[in-house]
């Protein structure tokens, strides 16, 4: 990837991950991808006691979407939010993980 573009993408990624509420949103999407805004708000309020306005949650989702970690999908009249962890690979590419013990090559 072009270096400047890479830095721009990485900035969005690290900014998105820097906020604890956004990390909780990602945790909830790991449990089940494909949630409406209402479901995400309910999970934050009822499971994490994070009383954030719907507008506030929308703004968090927009930051996650800019980082490529959340994708939205329209299905008929509904809009769902899906998790995409692919951008996280950039972190391991930049700072490679140690290979599994006893093996010389790291997993792809």
């Amino acid at each position: 990837m072009d270096t400047c573009l890479w830095w721009g993408v990485a900035e969005d990624l690290f900014k998105a991950l820097a906020d604890p509420t956004r990390r909780v949103i990602l945790d909830e999407l790991v449990e089940k991808s494909g949630q409406t805004l209402f479901e995400i708000c309910s999970r934050l309020a009822m499971r994490h006691q994070l009383a954030i306005s719907r507008q506030g949650v929308s703004q968090h989702l927009a930051v996650l979407e800019a980082a490529g970690l959340v994708e939205t999908r329209r299905e008929g009249r509904y809009k769902f939010h899906d998790l995409n962890t692919a951008p996280l690979r950039q972190i391991a590419e930049r700072w490679p993980l140690p290979g599994p013990p006893g093996r010389e090559e790291s997993t792809p």
Partner: peptide, 11 residues
């Protein structure tokens, strides 16, 4: 269903 059953704290 747009939301399948989920445990939301006590409910």
């Amino acid at each position: 269903f747009t939301q399948e059953p989920v445990e939301m704290g006590p409910v």
